[in-house]
Nucleic acid binder design. Sequence first.
DNA 1: GTAATGATTTAGGCATTCCTAAAACCAGTC
DNA 2: GACTGGTTTTAGGAATGCCTAAATCATTAC
Lengths: 225, 225
Amino acid sequence: MPLSEHTESVQDYLKTIFDIQREHGRVATTALAERLGNSPASVTGMIKKLAALNLVEYEPYQGVVLTPAGEKIALEVIRHHRLIERYLAEALGVPWDQVHAEAEKWEHVLSEDLEDRIDAVLGYPTTDPHGAPIPKRDGTLPPPHTTRLSDLQTGQSATIAEVSDHDPAMLRYFAELGLRPGVDVTVVAVAPFGGPLTVRLDDVEHAVGREVAGYVAVCDVTPVG
Amino acid sequence: MPLSEHTESVQDYLKTIFDIQREHGRVATTALAERLGNSPASVTGMIKKLAALNLVEYEPYQGVVLTPAGEKIALEVIRHHRLIERYLAEALGVPWDQVHAEAEKWEHVLSEDLEDRIDAVLGYPTTDPHGAPIPKRDGTLPPPHTTRLSDLQTGQSATIAEVSDHDPAMLRYFAELGLRPGVDVTVVAVAPFGGPLTVRLDDVEHAVGREVAGYVAVCDVTPVG
DNA sequence: GTAATGATTTAGGCATTCCTAAAACCAGTC
DNA sequence: GACTGGTTTTAGGAATGCCTAAATCATTAC
């Protein structure tokens, strides 16, 4: 039953299914294959194994959904991942845009005992360095953010709440811009049809009042005022 | 060439071969199999692979010796292992007799960057919590200790230098006795034929002057006076 | 010198997880 | 209702690393 009973592969599949499921509901084989960097054929094979373990519900050609058991494990893996990201950034000074890859490896070797120690040393944090919430030990996770930068009108202000860490290049881009969780921004201009927008960073060190443009619209935000 | 080019299995084999080689010179298949918990047949198979990679010299029926390339990797793995043990004990408060198992998993996922950060946070330590020396980045490692408790005469004093961590049960036993690196002891009695001996612990908290008997003779020591 | 004993290797298999190529399926278009 | 394009699954295979059982080797004892 515990996390450590499953292979790293299984853990990675469940974690990724959870991620996609939060965005799209049912998880298609191809979407999963793309995110994992495996071929669709391989994914089909593993899906059958997960279904046999009662970790996902699988209807051929219809994609998968996590069972409660699968979701429980996914949340444990994600908790490990985000706690470690936070720990690497805070205790070891790893730049926040580089912690993801490292955590990807460490999440699989973290014992429950060490998880508790790290959690305590950090003072029981609630988010990782990208702003994503850390699941509680009991599997509790707040609902996803509902507003993105692209939802704002020109002139509106907001606080960056969470930055996606799926694409390393985009993450580095955000880091260079100074666009990280906690930063206040104001929308200066919006391209038509939901294209790139320009924002003013209100209180970033070295960049007060600086304006940046580009594909920053995918950030989750908490609107201000 | 770098450590991460090799599988965890290969890393474990090289590390273990290095360990045994330090004690016994040439490494027999059976000795390796026992230490790794694998069957001798499996070990033969892997040895052939290591030989093909030029990491060991292998003469059938004659055991193996590490090549310079193999030794380099072994020392990197051991450096990872001991640095992590030290880190777990010092930064996360893991009891010193329990760090080994945890480090066994973590050693394989430590990047060079993180190795440097951990090394710096610890202030560039030279030994792990069992008293074993941490190889330097360039692969330097001091020669093994030459004196064991069992080499001492009744009445002689010494400082515990290193405690073997191969057997978890024995390690727990040492921890319970308070017999850890840095502790000063005096030999009170010696059984004949190199059997168990009795020592007085001179400066252990809660145990000043306490005497313990049993198989404590395997500890490495630095004789005093 | 030969025979027994223990160490080592070979032979044959199994589990995991991935791959490519080919077949099957599904949905939207004409 | 058949076609077509994209999605998904099946079929067949490869690499890794482990196992047991059976042969082979080396050494020690007599």
